[in-house]
């Protein structure tokens, strides 16, 4: 069970959060994109072994969505990036 550092609430156990998955770029305007590019943004994920960025939603407390950098093998978490990005 991860101990996640919420930017507002401090270190809280994983059960207070909902995982939103790998942090992807903000939603592009589909109009200018071909099908492959749109699909790549929608479902393509790096799924990196090692440190990657992911978003968590502190649903059972402050409600904030924020990004953390977590090692997918050891679960080490680095200090978090700016909220909302």
């Amino acid at each position: 069970m991860l101990l996640i550092d919420c930017p507002f609430c401090g270190k809280r156990p994983e059960g207070e959060f909902s995982c939103l998955g790998e942090a992807v770029a903000p939603r592009p305007d589909p109009a200018g994109l071909d099908d492959d590019t749109w699909s790549a943004w929608l479902v393509g994920r790096e799924n990196r072994r090692g440190f990657h960025s992911e978003r968590w939603w502190h649903v059972r407390s402050c409600g904030r969505v924020f990004t953390i950098t977590r090692d997918t093998v050891t679960h080490a978490i680095q200090p978090h990036a700016e909220a909302g990005q």
Binding site: L20, P26, R55, W57, V59, G63, R64, V65
Partner: peptide
């Protein structure tokens, strides 16, 4: 729906 809208607002349309 709650999660969907929160993510929409906080991540894509902050």
């Amino acid at each position: 729906v709650h999660g969907h809208l929160e993510q929409l607002l906080q991540v894509h349309r902050p």
